[in-house]
Every structure is written in C-alpha cells, then in structure tokens.
Design a binder for these strands. Structure first.
Lengths: 357, 357
DNA sequence: TTGAAAGCGATACCAA
DNA sequence: TTGGTATCGCTTTCAA
C-alpha cells in the first residue's frame, strides 16, 4: 500500500522549510535553481501531489468549474448531446488545470442547486445550460457575483451577461426555406419545450420562412415537448394519420427524429423515398451538406466545439477577474449555424406522387 | 450583490461560539433545542452555507466521487452511453449529498489521471470505466487504498475487486443464437476494440453460439474497433460488397449500428426488409421484445440503472470503510442481460430470397 | 535565497 | 450545554 506524503513530510525529508518547497514546486522565481532541482526530484520520487482541498482553501480558488445537467423529471432522461458538450468543455478545463464538477439534477429545482453550488464556494465559475425564456438563474448568479457563461440565451433578461449561442432563428429559417424551395408545403415542426428560449427562436425562424412565401403556419403541424424518442414517434404518427399529413418534418433534435423515422415506417411509408423528409438538428447546429457526411457525427463535433468555446470563455472571464479587469463588458458569441444535410437525412426531393399542393 | 457569510461571522452575529453554531447546524445532540432553533433560523435568514473546501479539509472527507470518461484520442468522441450512466450515478450521489467530479481524458494516459485524482485527495472514491483485458488501473488503485468500483471486469486481474458488469458472453450468445434460429448463417460481428474486456467476452458468446450449431466463425465477418458511426459504415460496406455477404449484423453499440444502416441503404438494400437484420446493443444491456418498445429508449434506461447501482455500491463501500468494516469481501454484481428486440431493429425474418445456405 | 508564522474556514477534542 | 483551541495541508506575508 502506498501512503501519500504531504508538504510537511516532504520538506522534512529534504531538510528545507515548507515555504521553500512550496515555492520551488510552484515556480516562484526567488528559489535557487539548485534547490528547485533537488525539490523537484524528491517530489517526483515520492510522487508528491499537493492536497487539493488544502490548496484551494489557502488560495481561495478551487480550480473547479460546475456544469449542471438537467435530467427530465418527467422522463428521467438527459439529452445525450450534453455528453459531447461536456467532452469539449472538459478538454479545455484539463488543459488549463481545472476540474469539472457535474451536477445531475431534476429540472424542477434548478435554481436551488445553482444557488447552492455558488454559495458553498466549491467552484470558481459555472455554465448555465438550457435557459428558459426568462431565466431566473441569470440575475441570481449576477447577484452572487460568481463568473458564469450561459449556453444559449434568455430573451426576457434585460441586463447583459456572458453567453454563447447558435443562431437558432436563422438556422430554422434556412432549413424550412430549403424544404419549401424543394416544393414542400406541409412542413411539420417538432420543437422542444415551449418554455425554452431556443424553442422560441426556432419557432420564429420556421414561421418567418413560411411567411416569406406567403404561407401561414398551421398550428396542427407544430408540436412542443421534451425531446424524447417517443415524443417524435407519437407526434409524427398522429400527424401522418390525418387527412392532410405533412410531407416533411423539421425536428429539433436527433432523438425525437429517431422516433419520427419509426412512425414513418409504421405508417408503411419509406423515409426519404416516397413520403417525407426529416431534417433534424441537435441543440446547437444545423445541417447542410452535399455528400456523404455522417449526420450524427457532424452534429456531435459541432456540439463539442460549443462546449470547448463556452469553457474557454469562462476561463478567460475568471482570468480577467483575477487581474482586476472586471469592467470589460460581457462576452457574447453567436455561432452561425451551418446547414448540413447528410446521407442519413435521406434524399432531399420527395416523390411527386406524395407531394401535395 | 450578495456576500456570503462564514461561520465566524454567523456566530458573532448570534453571540455564540463557532463550535456551538457548527454543532447546532450539524445536528449534534448536545445543543439545546432553543439554541439550535435560533441558529437554524439565523443561518436560513443569511442563507449561510458552509464552505465546502474548509469542511472537507477539516473532516478529511471530500464528499466527492470521480468518474473518468475516456475520450478517444483517435476520434475525439465520447461514447454517448456515458451520459446515461453518469445521469444514473449522479442521481444516487446527490441523494447522498455527494458531488461528482468528472474527468474527460484522452484514453492514452488513463493511468496517470487515475493516480493523480487518487493522490491529490480530491475525492473519496472513484469509478473505473471501460476496463481492458488486464487493466493496470485496478492493482494501482488497490495499492493507493482508495475505494473504487469497476464498471465491467478485467479478466486478466487475479485478485478480487468490486465490479458491476453485464453478462456479455451470454447476451451475445443468445443474440447470435436468435439469428441462427431464424435461419441466418452469415452473421457479422461488429465489436469494440479488441483490448477491451467486454469485447473479448462478446466474441466468446458469439463464437460459442456458432459452435453450438457446428458453424465455425468466419474471421472475415468479425471486426474490432472504436465504436464510431463511420466504423459501422465502412465495415458494413466492405462486408456487403463481397461475394458472400452477411445477412445479419450483430453490432456492439448503437452508434456504429447507425453507420451499418447507412451502408445498407447505400448498397441499395432495405434494412429489415430484404437483406439483413441489425441487432445492436449498448454497453450494458441486450434486447428482446415482442412489441413496440423504442429500442433506443430501452437501452438508455438500462445503462442508467447500471450507473445508479455502481454508485450505490461505491457509497456502500465508503460507508463500510468509515465504520471500520474493511474486510467484508468484494462487492460483485452481474446484471443478467435482457434480450430486447424493438421495432426499430426491424423485422426479424429476412426474406428467403436473400438468405443463403 | 530561505524560514517562521499567520491565515484560509471549517471540525473536534478537552475543559469548564 | 457551551466555549477555547488545536488541527487539516497548503499559500503567502514579513523578517532575516
């Protein structure tokens, strides 16, 4: 069994003070090179690692960032897209020597959890996921004066805050427009929960594209809910069984899109051949591509990039604050969504037979 | 701006000692009810939260568990199945007042990261993911004497350790057997990396099912690699273009299975109709079902359960150790895999036209 | 260039 | 039932 040693033991072994050893290991300039070398070698030999808890208590910085991942209280599911977002962020953190604290939390009591994390002083900053139209976490965190970056935006909030978002409105406008240009007239929108800010923006883009062509949005073709596979299935089945079914679906996430496919099969239709087109997107990016890009992969790497950039922003904000530059203004990044249509989306042109009007 | 107060300030405000306030809040019996009530009210009013770092330094327990998620250094991807595993575990942790520290790490230097986490004393225990055939992390962590649970097993390790695994061998034996019973004779196996312990066990089960029917496994029909969408696509395309293609695929994860479908489409074949059957599983469970179960959803909830149970085991191990019961023997759980065949797997019976032998 | 000592914010032992 | 004080392991200021 290996017992791990602390600073005191190491310094005694070296016949030096704790101060000197600490300075040597942390790269302070006032240590002689000879001493530093000796200390480094000894630390290596005994595989000394400073106790993180003690270190952070002494420095006042925990070198930890919190992410709170909402798990649906209704479906006990997390959006798997978070995995990629966190992978991207996590990479950035470990590069900078930060740890990542993950809270998996029912979406009902988010605010309490955020307040808790902030006031327990367990992290140096945090990422706010899945903001609603008017998200109370934002003013609360501002009040607590802890660095944070919102992944997404909250339209109802007045003041400025740091965010990274994708241009959801334009992305959905373009996607819907693409389908319209191909001749589709009955296009369904399977969106996320209506309380979510992104869902609102996506609705906007969708409606705008229709209006540009003089088409009024049909409320029968718009659905809002948590983005589960079953949601996609149920809604698509219902819509497909009406007398005037959609010929295309715009789906807000890859998960319900799987359900939509299932409904299409079940209705005896063949996806991408004679009935309908599904364009799904993930939580962040949109699709356009000519060729053979595996859609699933394209989505994932874009989310990963978002995570990376969010993390980088947050670390930069923390850095600035430590240097006393607190009035630099908010950091705000709008990722322009790329439209990618991969092979797995199916062919773009629906058969004339089924295309109405 | 809200400034958060510490124990000292709170106790001064109350005219009590820090000791008493601490005791009152932590439920020690030797505090009078009147005092406790007063303290509780004041703490509530000022929304006092003990500083986690100080607390854990003083108690010696960090109330944090680490998970290390491998991100492929080759493909920069994490297995999305981890999201569900962690969701399950995270739920268990927050129930018990534990935090979850997540390390996203290139699969190349896993051992260093594990050693680091253990020796920095930042967590009370950890979960080992994706063990290889002879995983060096296991003896190392035993050496460091830190509580851990392995998600999976490592066949090459001699001593006993705590693990939770699924019966991979039997699951793949049954799955392959099912296809054989349906008349398939050319069944491909798309497995994970050959270094992984689970891949080895799955190979075993697959081979065994074939041998039981007197069929020798064809090495041309077996593939090992990281489970990406593209891997599934490339391998399936290659296999389908030979003169003696498979009529069914057994795929080790849902991600490459998406690629397999794409390859099937590309070859001009229709999945589940006239050519082939894909049975995929996730990292933990297997599929059987008559009806309309959305496969994707079934997988996910089983992984979630595994995460929950792993976490519960670990917390129990930590609890026992704190009570000094260190020689209780290892905890080992074998989840019997359930075979679920959902609608999205496609029909089970391939058309006679394409079924050879 | 080195070291002694005072924090950081809690817990826990020992007295009162 | 309460309070004083040492302690956890490290950083950091101040003196030498």
């Amino acid at each position: 069994m290996i017992s791990c040693m602390n600073l005191k033991q190491l310094s005694e072994k070296l016949g030096l003070s704790q101060t000197t050893v600490s300075r040597a290991l942390n790269g302070y300039p006032e240590v002689s090179e000879a001493t530093r070398h000796k200390v480094r070698k000894a630390a290596e030999a005994h595989s000394y690692r400073p106790n993180t808890r003690a270190k952070s208590l002494a420095t006042g910085r925990s070198m930890t960032i919190a992410h709170v991942v909402p798990v649906s209280s209704k479906h006990e599911m997390v959006n798997p897209i978070f995995a990629d977002f966190i992978a991207g962020a996590g990479e950035e953190y470990s590069r900078a020597g930060y740890d990542l604290l993950l809270s998996v939390v029912a979406d009902s009591d988010h605010e309490r959890v955020y307040r808790d994390i902030a006031t327990r002083q367990v992290v140096d900053g945090l990422i706010v996921q899945a903001p609603t139209l008017t998200d109370t976490r934002i003013p609360m965190l501002q009040d607590l004066d802890i660095p944070f970056v919102v992944h997404g935006r909250s339209s109802g909030i007045i003041g400025a805050y740091n965010w990274l978002d994708v241009n959801n409105r334009r992305a959905f406008e373009r996607a819907t427009g693409l389908l319209l240009d191909l001749g589709h007239r009955r296009i369904a929108l399977l969106n996320g929960l209506a309380t979510m800010d992104f869902a609102h923006r996506r609705n906007d883009g969708y409606t705008r594209a229709l209006l540009e062509r003089g088409i009024a949005a049909d409320p029968e073709l718009i659905a809002h809910d948590e983005m589960t596979e079953n949601y996609g299935f149920e809604v698509a089945r219902r819509m497909l069984s009406t007398s005037n079914p959609p010929t295309a679906f715009v789906v807000s996430s890859i998960i319900p899109a799987i359900g939509v496919r299932r409904a299409i099969n079940k209705a005896g239709l063949v996806f991408g051949r004679d009935v309908s087109i599904v364009i799904h997107d993930d939580d962040l990016s949109y699709f356009r591509n000519t060729g053979d890009v595996p859609l699933f992969t394209a989505v994932r790497s874009s989310v990963r990039e978002a995570g990376q950039r969010c993390a980088a922003m947050l670390l930069e904000i923390i850095r600035r604050r430590e240097e006393g530059l607190r009035n630099e203004g908010p950091m705000q990044t709008l990722m322009e969504a790329e439209l990618t249509i991969g092979q797995s989306t199916g062919p773009l042109i629906p058969s004339a037979a089924k295309l109405r009007s």
